[in-house]
Amino acid sequence: MKKILLFASGTGSNVENIIQYFKNHHDIIVVGVFTNNPNAKVLDKAKTHNVPTLIFTKEELNEGFVLNKINELQPDLIVLAGFLWKMPEEIVTAYPNKIINIHPALLPKYGGKGMYGMKVHQTVLDNKEKETGITIHYVNEHYDEGEFIFQQKVSIENCASADEIAFKIHELEHNHFPKIIERLLEG
């Protein structure tokens, strides 16, 4: 049995999609949802699907508490699905090539500290890009700089707002993220 541990900070649409995708999978299970946000809607989504949750502070993330909780679960893959804090080097070192992230742009463009969610989509729109997409990558000690696993492009020539871009990106995320996770876990 392969185990996935999810990290998220917000609404959790990707988390819910991943949980549903693996709900009836016999070889892969979601063992927990960890969040830094006690008001995150992802907590309700996890509860709906009977997935255990953990809420933690910045200090708990950086001082070993979260790493201890991860070690208790022994996940095969840690998935950042809308998690906004940088993973401490201690966790990255403990789980080499076992932590992945999804970014709502075609890295290396529009990545780095502060580039997430609607900020990315608005910047892409402001720069009059003709296409954007998603990047799934391994997590290292720097924001959005880990080795790429998968990218998918989408045309945004007809998009007039950041919300329209966000809609297209969410479609890509929901379609590809669970499949890439499955591929990584099944080798």
Rank of each mutant, 00 (worst) to 15 (best):
L185P: 14
N24E: 15
M115C: 11
L84F: 02
S9W: 03
F34K: 08
E173A: 09
M118C: 00
G133K: 01
F148R: 12
P75T: 05
A105W: 08
K47I: 08
E147R: 11
Q152V: 05
V79F: 02
N37E: 13
E72G: 02
T132I: 06
K45F: 08
V15M: 06
G10M: 07
E157V: 04
F65G: 03
D163C: 01
K47R: 13
K2V: 03
I136Q: 09
K41P: 09
N101F: 11
Q151M: 12
H26W: 04
N24A: 07
L106I: 11
A94W: 12
E89Y: 02
K69R: 15
I102V: 15
K130L: 09
L80C: 08
Q151T: 15
L107W: 03
P96I: 05
P104M: 02
Y21F: 15
E72W: 02
W85F: 11
Q122C: 00
K168D: 03
K2T: 07
N71V: 06
F56R: 12
A166P: 14
N140F: 06
S9I: 02
V124N: 01
L172V: 08
D76H: 14
N175M: 07
F34Q: 10
E89T: 05
G114E: 13
E16D: 15
H137Q: 11
P88I: 04
Q74F: 04
E90V: 05
K130P: 02
F7A: 00
F177C: 01
E157G: 00
N62F: 10
N175T: 12
S161C: 03
K45E: 08
A166I: 06
E141Q: 14
K98M: 12
K23W: 11
I18K: 05
F148N: 14
I134T: 11
S13N: 14
T11V: 08
G112Y: 10
N68C: 04
F83D: 09
R183G: 03
I19S: 06
M115G: 09
V15E: 07
K41G: 15
H49M: 12
F7M: 03
F34W: 10
P104C: 04
V66F: 07
F167D: 08
S155H: 05
F150N: 12
L84T: 01
Y95H: 12
H49E: 13
A81H: 09
E173H: 12
K119N: 15
A94Y: 13
Q20V: 04
F167G: 00
N97T: 00
I91M: 09
I134A: 08
C159H: 02
K113S: 01
V15N: 07
K168L: 15
Q74R: 10
M1H: 13
G12E: 07
T93G: 00
E60T: 10
